[in-house]
Design a binder for these strands. Structure first.
Lengths: 232, 232
DNA sequence: CGCGAGCTTGACGTTGTTCAACTAGAGTGG
DNA sequence: CCACTCTAGTTGAACAACGTCAAGCTCGCG
């Protein structure tokens, strides 16, 4: 990691800058920009580790990441999966200083790391901006909470349906997509065994509700999927 | 509800005022105080309803409340249970304007309702105060997240152990307490059937790890309970 | 060509839900 | 004052869902 970061990639088209510009002057944004490091992460790389000290607010410019929790016995659990552009600072800014989970790239990512403390200090006099950022970054917590509710109330087929719908609507933003997640990762998201994921997916495939060809997935009948999500 | 609220009960000893005083002048606090309504809720009463428009930040002065989610089929699920003093504004301030869950008194409660919008406006120029409030109110989200993880990884006996420990440490703040929750409410917290709660509790009782006499509960062996929480 | 990772399928045992029956206490009304 | 009812708690049995295990498959890569 370099002391002096490279100039920000595609900085003008940046969603983070757009939000910031509503509340900060060009000079003020420049201060934040100077405490920012831009990095590239390959699929599978860890951006920060569960248990480590939280030092940066993460802005996910492009790519897909998972929030991974590992318990004492080494079992993994995916709390949420999000695609850029998105501010991922929430958990670190608000919770204690230790990361509750790991952040791991599911696809190649362009990421900006913004120093936690310096960032917070710079924002002290910008209540409205702070509020806007909180709103943006807190949105993420909706997913674990709804996933939680889904887990508590539904059987596996309902949860799998939920996950396919969520990935289609919020991550890949298309009803036809390359499923970069492995079956095991899906099982860690749905909190079930990977065999169960496979069985459920092929059942959905046979019934024609989705079409699976290797990694490629197409949703044929959104309504039926939503039915299963509801009554599963 | 009256237009002009009664003077705040026990206002000097108030945790909310203590936090506020670090960042606001007496005059500024007085403005917030003027947009605050203090109310009493009886055990079982609903403070706000899932699906309704969120209009107030809730400050729980005294008492215990549950965050209740009800799905389409009428099944209830308790996301978290907290005791006062605590700021419960998070969910309404940050999420969309509609309540994701209902807030229901588990024991009699003293509550202050602070108008959402007016409150936010008053805070715009107080970044540090805003940040402190966010930290306080976001803390609540840790519980659903850890409950979520517990749910995903553990069997019922582990989750029940978790819940007893949580109630003892964070809600009743004693290893001996009157369990005001019904078995059904515990089952809604643990996401299992109420029969399963009963069976698990009486097993813990028979093994001497806890002592149950009607509503009264005493933890005899915290370490064994933590063992069960871990390996269950 | 061989190896390993990811994927798939079926058999089997465990866990937990559902259902049904029973008990105890609290509230209600004749 | 005694049935009646309603709610909360309790227990056990039958059944379904799900995880685990084992075996075999395919594909990409060294």
């Amino acid at each position: 990691m370099f002391e002096n970061p490279l100039p920000l990639y595609n900085c003008d088209a940046c969603f983070f800058k757009t939000i910031s510009s509503l509340h900060l002057s060009a000079d003020e944004f420049d201060i934040i920009r100077k405490m920012t490091t831009q990095l590239h992460f390959e699929k599978g790389e860890t951006i920060f580790k569960q248990g480590a000290k939280a030092t940066h607010v993460v802005f996910l410019h492009k790519g897909i990441v998972k929030f991974n929790y590992q318990n004492e016995t080494g079992k993994n659990f995916i709390m949420t999966i999000v695609s850029g552009p998105k501010i991922l600072g929430g958990a670190n800014l608000f919770f204690k200083e230790i990361n509750v989970f790991s952040l791991i790239a599911v696809e190649n990512c362009e990421i900006c790391l913004i120093d936690n403390i310096a960032f917070a200090n710079a924002l002290m006099n910008h209540g409205a901006y702070l509020m806007a950022l909180f709103r943006e970054s807190i949105e993420m917590f909706q997913v674990p909470i709804f996933n939680f509710i889904s887990l508590a109330h539904k059987q596996v087929n309902g949860r799998i349906a939920d996950i396919i719908l969520y990935l289609s609507e919020n991550v890949y933003k298309n009803n036809e997509f390359q499923l970069t997640l492995t079956r095991k990762e899906i099982s860690e998201f749905a909190a079930c065994s990977h065999e169960n994921v496979i069985t459920t997916l092929s059942k959905l495939n046979k019934e024609g509700i989705i079409t699976l060809e290797g990694k490629h997935c197409r949703i044929n009948d959104v309504n039926k999927l939503k039915e299963i999500s509801k009554h599963g």
